[in-house]
């Protein structure tokens, strides 16, 4: 039933598929982030306790939640690559890692600029902040491992094992605000019950969260395509593309 999926493990087909999907992801990302950010900065009501400093939420929460989602995506791709030996999955994992690292850095940085006016400090070593910092180091570890082997099959296996082991950190980040007393507030958006946030504030936030997700998808496709080309330099169809690039 799912056998048709196998054909997309072929490098050329996955390269072309990524190219077809790219404009949709990119278009949605630009539209959602554009509207969500302008709405959040200009039209969302001010928070009665935090004033206008709360507007940092419209990039902090999307970056933080997507840094974890991207990690799960990367680890899933690594798992598929290791178990079923599908190289395209390894390339996808390698493409996500730098994007996730940037998301994590943004989450940490915007958290610091929000923490300074609200908590009075840029940084505390509490559970939520520290576990998110560990996530950044996990991403950097995966990037470094993948870069340090000439043989990319071996590199993907080494980086993949680190990525899979690192999944343990994701529930720790998610539940850190419940398990330990933390300066960081617990989640405001809840999937199973009503969110403790008014709609005017919530909708632009949801738009930016989905927008960041689409942006990560689009960037993954862009990097995936380059990775497919780099790993298949011996194939005729890649050589044709290289020739076309050289004569341009």
């Amino acid at each position: 039933m799912w056998k048709w999926l196998n054909s997309y493990a072929d490098p050329q087909r996955s390269y072309n598929l990524a190219g077809t999907l790219l404009p949709w992801f990119a278009g949605l990302a630009i539209a959602l982030i554009g509207v969500g950010t302008i709405w959040g900065l200009l039209f969302a009501p001010m928070d009665y306790q935090q004033g206008d400093s709360f507007r940092i939420i419209y990039i902090h929460v999307p970056a933080a939640s997507m840094s974890m989602a991207a990690y799960m995506g990367m680890a899933t791709a690594s798992f598929i690559g290791i178990v079923w030996q599908i190289k395209a999955a390894d390339w996808a994992a390698a493409s996500i890692a730098p994007i996730g690292a940037v998301m994590t850095f943004i989450a940490l940085f915007t958290g610091a600029t929000w923490g300074k006016p609200m908590w009075g400090t840029w940084w505390v070593w509490d559970a939520r902040l520290t576990s998110e910092l560990v996530l950044l180091f996990l991403y950097l570890g995966v990037i470094a491992l993948y870069a340090s082997f000439e043989d990319k099959v071996l590199a993907a296996r080494a980086a993949g094992i680190l990525a899979i082991v690192g999944v343990i950190n994701i529930p720790i980040i998610k539940y850190s605000v419940e398990w330990w007393s933390s300066l960081h507030q617990p989640a405001t958006i809840k999937i199973t019950e009503e969110s403790t946030m008014t709609g005017d504030m919530l909708y632009p936030l949801l738009m930016n969260i989905f927008g960041f997700g689409m942006m990560i998808g689009a960037l993954t496709l862009v990097r995936f395509r380059a990775e497919v080309l780099a790993r298949n330099g011996m194939r005729p169809w890649v050589r044709e593309l290289a020739n076309a690039e050289a004569t341009k």
């Binding site: 900065l41 940092i56 990039i59 902090h60 970056a63 730098p98 994007i99 940037v102 850095f105 943004i106 940085f109 915007t110 600029t113 929000w114 942006m215 960037l219 862009v222 990097r223 395509r225 380059a226 990775e227 080309l229 780099a230 330099g233 890649v238 050589r239 593309l241 290289a242 690039e245 050289a246």
Partner: peptide
Amino acid sequence: AYGVTFGCLGILILHSLSQKKKVLTEI
């Protein structure tokens, strides 16, 4: 916060877009 975020995203996007050309030139 907004400046650093969109600065980082801009660099990431430009870097990602430049990869394909770099790889093909190398090949």
